[in-house]
Design a binder for these strands. Structure first.
Lengths: 339, 339
DNA sequence: CTGTTAGCGCATTCAG
DNA sequence: CTGAATGCGCTAACAG
């Protein structure tokens, strides 16, 4: 087993000083061609690679980005990671990924763990529990320590930092507008608990579109579901107690589950009832019929977040100006609406 | 902005030596209660946290695990990551995750990047291109350098290291056995290119089950698909040219796509034709009808891999004994087979 | 009980 | 052109 080789060992082997080796390897003009050649040959032969930990300590930067997300087994979040990775790699950064499982405590712990020098900055989507608690002190602390932070998707105004979100409200608005234009009258909304920043925005877009088109808001047409609960009964009851022409869902799964419920009731999609869901994931693509969706462009969000973060990391001056980048959502027409 | 505070600063502030501070914070018996209290109070107040990079350099261990996977937007792999994360967290390890996008070159680069001290060990699933090239020198180099390595799912016998796989062959065997027991005669196999170690094993199980039950192997019943190609034409032709009673798919997507193709042809699942797919992912769960699957237990694989790796990392002696842990697959009955 | 010293691996400044 | 010395932040052996 050939262990890691260090500058010191090369130096001893070649009977020169450590600093000579260091310089030779960096092609410094201070070193004669002869010794340079000799050293480089030996280094290559012994497969020398500078120890990144030592470099991190010296340069005070790790070239690591801490990515903290609520869930990894999730199409949207994994798409974002992929986007982050894509950009980060071009800049030589690696990703340290932590999953909070939607837990406030895990979010705090993971941040603390990484904030001790392991990373140069954070990219984070707030966990469900944190949004519920509405407590963002741990995030504020990060920024106070001068660690760059970019929030994405699930954000908050409480923390001054860069953010990247999609135009949730506009996306929902456009979706509802399409449903209205198709002649639908009773348009339902399937949503999650209201403390989710994104659900709130989508809810706003839904209401706005209705109002702008002289519809009345009927709270009976809005169903709030728990996304951990896999029981379809509430959905069945919802569709049993009233006639519905079209449905907007704030995510993919609610939409698909509802679609199956009405199909079981013997309704045809999209002839009898139309569906639009948020997130253009695999589920939508493979659903039967293919679900019409509002694409959140997770990949682009990730790339944008990474770009903002790395810019902050590498900028010298203490820039206190924070931007919020809004990614435009896109309506992707599947077969669950009449096109 | 309150910057990171170091031992040195505390020492200067309190007019003691650095090592006194260090010892006091570690509750060393060498320090008097008085100074200890004073130092700890100040440390807590100034929110001192030891710099993990410095610790890594000193202790020669980073408490980081390098996880290298072919794809992140993928239910199985993200499940494995979750499993790794779960176990690693209990042991205080963080995950540095790299995605190769099935590319050999990216696999090599990512490994090189991390092998320079950033991580204590690797957990890796071989990329498609690497399996195709059949070149594993980069992996051998890792083990030669004494860096612990655990391969999962896509493994190779070329490299001596710990491995965790599922009983792919047995899983396929059991699935085909079930199809035979249900009275199906013409049982097809949808598979990927044969250089995938897992596909190969599943193919073996398929053949073995047929032979053991006095079926002849009909190569026409085996369809090899490219998983990047989204065109359903080859699938359609496959089902057009012959009658098929049942299908085993080596993954989720082929199975679901094929199911849709036959449904479009007017066949009923499972009355006219049955389906079983590998991987019990979201797609299978939300498919219509719910796909019967061979569950690969990604979470358990991840936990097992993490446990094996951390054990190797933390064991003192140079243990050259490598284990291969086989996770038992489970047949999950959906509605795409007659139960 | 407290402080000095050395060293982890590297880059860099300053002498020679 | 080469090397000794310093420091990044921390721990530990060793003096005092």
């Amino acid at each position: 087993m050939k262990k890691k080789i260090t500058l010191k060992q090369i130096a001893r082997e070649l009977e020169v000083s450590i600093s000579t080796v260091s310089k030779a390897l960096k092609d410094s003009g201070e070193i004669s061609k002869d010794t340079k050649d000799k050293i480089r040959a030996f280094a290559k032969m012994s497969n020398y690679r500078p120890n990144s930990i030592a470099l991190s300590l010296k340069n005070r930067q790790t070239k690591n980005i801490g990515v903290i997300i609520p869930e990894i087994v999730h199409h949207f979040f994994s798409t974002v990671i992929k986007g982050i990775q894509t950009y980060a790699n071009t800049k030589g950064y690696n990703l340290i990924i932590c999953v909070t499982n939607e837990s406030y405590e895990k979010e705090v712990i993971n941040i603390e763990l990484l904030a001790n020098g392991s990373i140069d900055g954070f990219i984070l989507a707030i966990s469900e529990e944190t949004e519920m608690k509405n407590n963002f002190d741990h995030l504020k602390e990060i920024t106070e320590q001068g660690i760059p932070l970019v929030l994405f998707d699930r954000v908050t105004n409480e923390v001054a930092c860069d953010k990247v979100i999609i135009d949730d409200k506009v996306g929902a608005y456009k979706a509802v507008k399409k449903l209205i234009d198709n002649g639908n009258k009773k348009i339902a909304l399937l949503t999650t608990a209201s403390y989710f920043s994104v659900s709130k925005e989508r809810d706003r877009g839904y209401r706005q579109a209705l109002l702008d088109n002289n519809f009345e808001i009927n709270e009976n047409l809005i169903l709030e579901l728990d996304h951990f609960d896999m029981d379809d009964t509430p959905i069945e009851e919802f569709f049993d107690k009233q006639e519905i022409d079209a449905v907007l869902s704030v995510n993919e799964t609610f939409g698909i589950r509802a679609m199956r419920v009405v199909q079981r009731k013997g309704l045809k999609v999209p002839e009898d009832i139309s569906f639009i869901g948020f997130t253009d994931g695999l589920l939508s693509r493979y659903a039967n019929p293919r679900l019409t969706t509002v694409d959140q462009h997770g990949g682009r969000m990730g790339e944008a977040a990474a770009e903002m973060l790395i810019e902050k990391i590498e900028s010298e001056e203490e820039n206190e100006i924070y931007r919020t980048e809004v990614i435009k959502s896109t309506l992707i027409e599947g077969d669950s609406t009449i096109n």
